[in-house]
């Protein structure tokens, strides 16, 4: 398919991960606080307004912790909407892991926040995310990151980790 045609040849760096979209060692007592930290990073980087943060929390309240899609990793996101100013990505690492209520993948140490302006054009974006995270070393590496530059490097230089 179209995804496989780009995999695993040249891995393009994911767009939209400026340093101000990365938070290292956020303090969060519970999962809504953790999602809020991701929402704040998206707002800070100019991708969304705070209304999007509330919608990301609503998704979990409605459907449960299914967004914890791998051990230690939550993919915070909501549907496209007027509160998405531009496609955006953020990464938040937590000072202490937080339980989201997922039977297999709790507790969460890393939150990747995703905002897309349209449902159709996000597939290549997500395929690149999969390219990064299909390496099982990436989540522990992100969880232990001490600088935003390191996190940026993980997303831009996946070849080095592969």
């Amino acid at each position: 398919m179209e995804f496989d045609s780009t995999y695993p040849k040249v891995i393009m760096p994911l767009p939209h991960l400026p340093l101000n979209a990365i938070t290292i060692g956020a303090l969060a007592d519970d999962w809504p606080a953790a999602i809020t930290a991701a929402g704040d990073a998206l707002v800070r980087s100019g991708a969304t307004t705070s209304a999007y943060t509330d919608r990301m929390i609503e998704v979990i309240r409605e459907f449960g912790a299914y967004i914890v899609i791998a051990p230690g990793l939550a993919l915070a996101h909501a549907r496209p909407g007027a509160d998405v100013l531009t496609d955006g990505l953020c990464v938040v690492t937590l000072a202490e892991p937080v339980a989201f209520g997922h039977p297999h993948n709790d507790p969460v140490s890393v939150i990747v926040g995703l905002a897309v302006s349209g449902a159709d054009d996000h597939l290549q974006f997500v395929a690149e995310l999969a390219n990064v995270f299909n390496d099982p070393a990436v989540i522990p590496a992100l969880a232990g990151a001490t600088t935003a530059e390191f996190v940026q490097g993980v997303f831009g230089q996946t070849e080095a980790l592969a």
Binding site: I67, I69, H77, H122, L123, V126, A127, A130, N134
Partner: peptide, 17 residues
């Protein structure tokens, strides 16, 4: 997935692989 994009798109990519 809950809303039909994001998580399900990742699952689609990896299911195809």
């Amino acid at each position: 997935c809950g809303i039909g994009l994001g998580t399900s798109a990742i699952l689609k990519v990896n299911a195809e692989r």
